[in-house]
Simulated assay, not measured.
Amino acid sequence: MTMETFITVNDAKIFAKLIGTKSIKPTVVMDAGYGDYSKGWKSIVSEVASLTEVLVYDRAGLGKSEASSNPRTSLEMVRELKELLEKMRMTPPYLLVGHSFGGVNVRLYASIFPDDVSGLLLVDATPEDYRERFLPTMSEEFQEAYNNQFTLEGNYDEFGESLRQLKEYKMRLSVPLIVLSAGKKDYYSDESQKLWNLLQEETLQISSNSERIIAENSAHYIQDDEPLIVIDAIKRLLEPFEEN
């Protein structure tokens, strides 16, 4: 089953796509990276929908969704996702999957609404102290390109505010967490890759039930480079809900 719909959230119509059939397993809710939208999951969404119901959506101002007058910070996006799920009458808990900046959003969602979440999958997610510890170690060219990308969805300051919000609301979770990180990042030296690996490893500390998987042959878009790794991680997080 596939259903596409537009739901008014605050002052914007948000595009959402529901795929698959609801079962005793949690609905998988996928949040794409900065400037990305629902099509960012096209490599895996059909396979995941064979396991359980899947929701992909376009955040305000991206894809088919209207722009919002609210700040483009993670906290606003989390509130909007919460409203979207409620208006669609979705039943928690959800298995949240976040790629890159989407990982910031799903982490913040799990901290604010822990009862809504059955598990977390972070797909090469942005660490909370990326700017302080990682970005300064990169070349000036890399830093300039990084800073100049913030035109699609929120500006540089709003992105920084999102990382600050993640720290402010940070709490120790008990839900299963899989941290899936890229082992072959574009433009990364050996030293940069090691630091990235360290920051990803430290993310395990947010849950008492966590596991790290390195996608050795993947750059940032693991769902495209090694889709089976992402699909397998989702399967594992759904296993506790398998029918007997």
Rank of each mutant, 00 (worst) to 15 (best):
residue 216 E to F: 02
residue 222 I to C: 05
residue 215 A to N: 09
residue 202 E to V: 10
residue 200 Q to T: 06
residue 222 I to T: 06
residue 191 E to R: 14
residue 193 Q to H: 10
residue 223 Q to L: 08
residue 211 E to K: 15
residue 201 E to Q: 14
residue 191 E to A: 15
residue 206 I to N: 07
residue 215 A to K: 06
residue 211 E to I: 01
residue 217 N to E: 11
residue 223 Q to N: 12
residue 206 I to M: 12
residue 198 L to R: 13
residue 217 N to M: 02
residue 204 L to G: 03
residue 211 E to V: 03
residue 215 A to F: 00
residue 211 E to C: 07
residue 202 E to H: 05
residue 196 W to A: 05
residue 223 Q to V: 11
residue 224 D to W: 00
residue 202 E to Q: 15
residue 218 S to T: 06
residue 193 Q to T: 14
residue 217 N to S: 10
residue 210 S to L: 02
residue 214 I to Y: 00
residue 199 L to S: 05
residue 192 S to P: 01
residue 220 H to F: 04
residue 225 D to M: 07
residue 202 E to P: 05
residue 221 Y to K: 11
residue 211 E to L: 11
residue 216 E to P: 11
residue 194 K to W: 00
residue 194 K to F: 00
residue 216 E to I: 11
residue 217 N to K: 15
residue 219 A to M: 03
residue 194 K to Q: 14
residue 222 I to H: 01
residue 205 Q to I: 02
residue 200 Q to F: 03
residue 221 Y to P: 07
residue 203 T to S: 13
residue 207 S to G: 09
residue 225 D to R: 05
residue 223 Q to D: 01
residue 227 P to H: 04
residue 212 R to I: 10
residue 192 S to H: 15
residue 207 S to E: 05
residue 195 L to Q: 13
residue 191 E to S: 15
residue 219 A to G: 12
residue 207 S to V: 04
residue 206 I to A: 05
residue 224 D to A: 07
residue 220 H to V: 07
residue 196 W to M: 07
residue 198 L to W: 05
residue 197 N to V: 04
residue 193 Q to G: 12
residue 192 S to E: 14
residue 220 H to I: 07
residue 215 A to D: 05
residue 209 N to E: 09
residue 195 L to M: 15
residue 210 S to P: 08
residue 209 N to F: 10
residue 208 S to H: 01
residue 203 T to H: 01
residue 209 N to Y: 02
residue 199 L to Q: 10
residue 225 D to G: 05
residue 222 I to L: 03
residue 196 W to Y: 06
residue 194 K to D: 13
residue 200 Q to I: 02
residue 203 T to N: 12
residue 224 D to C: 03
residue 221 Y to W: 04
residue 226 E to F: 00
residue 217 N to V: 02
residue 218 S to N: 05
residue 218 S to R: 02
residue 223 Q to K: 04
residue 201 E to R: 12
residue 227 P to W: 00
residue 192 S to N: 15
residue 195 L to E: 13
residue 226 E to A: 09
residue 217 N to P: 02
residue 194 K to R: 15
residue 206 I to W: 01
residue 203 T to V: 09
residue 220 H to G: 11
residue 193 Q to Y: 04
residue 198 L to Q: 14
residue 214 I to R: 11
residue 197 N to T: 14
residue 221 Y to Q: 06
residue 207 S to D: 06
residue 200 Q to A: 11
residue 210 S to N: 07
residue 199 L to G: 05
residue 203 T to C: 03
residue 209 N to A: 10
residue 196 W to G: 08
residue 194 K to V: 11
residue 223 Q to F: 00
residue 212 R to Y: 06
residue 214 I to G: 10
residue 202 E to S: 07
residue 201 E to D: 11
residue 211 E to N: 07
residue 227 P to I: 10
residue 208 S to N: 11
residue 198 L to N: 06
residue 213 I to W: 09
residue 208 S to F: 01
residue 216 E to M: 08
residue 205 Q to M: 03
residue 204 L to I: 02
residue 198 L to E: 13
residue 205 Q to S: 15
residue 222 I to F: 01
residue 226 E to T: 14
residue 211 E to Y: 06
residue 216 E to W: 01
residue 193 Q to V: 12
residue 208 S to V: 03
residue 217 N to T: 09
residue 192 S to V: 02
residue 213 I to Y: 06
residue 209 N to K: 12
residue 197 N to L: 14
